[in-house]
Nucleic acid binder design. Structure first.
Lengths: 132, 132
DNA sequence: CATGAAGGTTCTAGCCACTATAAGGTCAAG
DNA sequence: CTTGACCTTATAGTGGCTAGAACCTTCATG
């Protein structure tokens, strides 16, 4: 029961930045909240929960678009969770494919690194590989 | 000895897009070339080689900034190749660290995927995890 | 030599998810 | 009432392109 807090406190409480919270509002992930007479945004636990949800989803590497979908889905208790599953599944596939690509890259970079025993650019195997 | 070619032909020859080549020029990776009377850029093998160098470096995941440095270094035969090595080494480290992160993500996403046997959002373990 | 298609030119805006900066207004404590 | 921490909006920038508009050039045809 922390009552109403300003954006800075919410930022601290959720380890986000105030600008990011405002950005989420402008992007439609968090709806506009009540303001003080002076125009300061006032947040409640509701927004804190929502922001933490967003944070956790972002930590899964999901796009804001996907996070937005999840937030929408989360609000309808009786809807089937197929779409949730497929968002997660597709993300998993993206991650797996990215890992495969990066492992190939790691191999290649490793080969280059080990291959170069030169002192000067003229003899450098790395520059040589890149040049053809 | 292909002589002078227009941007579209260079693009085809290097599997790049013309806009990308112009972008590289504006970014300082390729220097401005001679033009026809009508203003068409005319490229030679020199630029073709340079572009292929850029492509290969980009395939290693290097930033245009790093590619630019490599191009600069490549031009000085007698310079030590330390800096080349360190660009590659740092990229390798970035890739390794990214792989580690993505593998953790894969674990987490896999757990979520396997954990959800629910039919509706109300019982969905994924939404539950994200909600706290 | 005229025409038309294919391909070139510059410029501007958009993508994503922020980050940075400026110029100003509000709030609470002392 | 002043101070200083915090808030406000607006604008521009990041990287590495991509998309589109409006216009101009080139070159193979008829």
């Amino acid at each position: 029961m922390s009552g109403q807090i300003t954006i800075g406190r919410l930022a601290k409480a959720t380890d986000t930045k105030a600008v990011t919270i405002r950005y989420y509002e402008s992007a439609g992930l968090i709806s506009p909240v009540n303001r003080t007479q002076g125009g300061y945004r006032l947040y409640t636990d509701r927004e804190k929960d929502r922001l933490l949800f967003i944070k956790r989803a972002r930590q899964l590497g999901l796009s804001l678009e996907d996070v937005k979908s999840l937030l929408g889905l989360a609000d309808d208790e009786n809807a089937p969770c197929e779409q949730v599953d497929s968002i997660i599944h597709e993300q998993l596939e993206r991650v797996r494919s990215r890992v495969r690509d990066l492992l190939k890259l790691e191999q290649e970079l490793g080969r280059l690194e080990r291959g170069c025993k030169a002192e000067t650019i003229g003899e450098c195997k790395i520059i040589e590989s890149l040049s053809r």
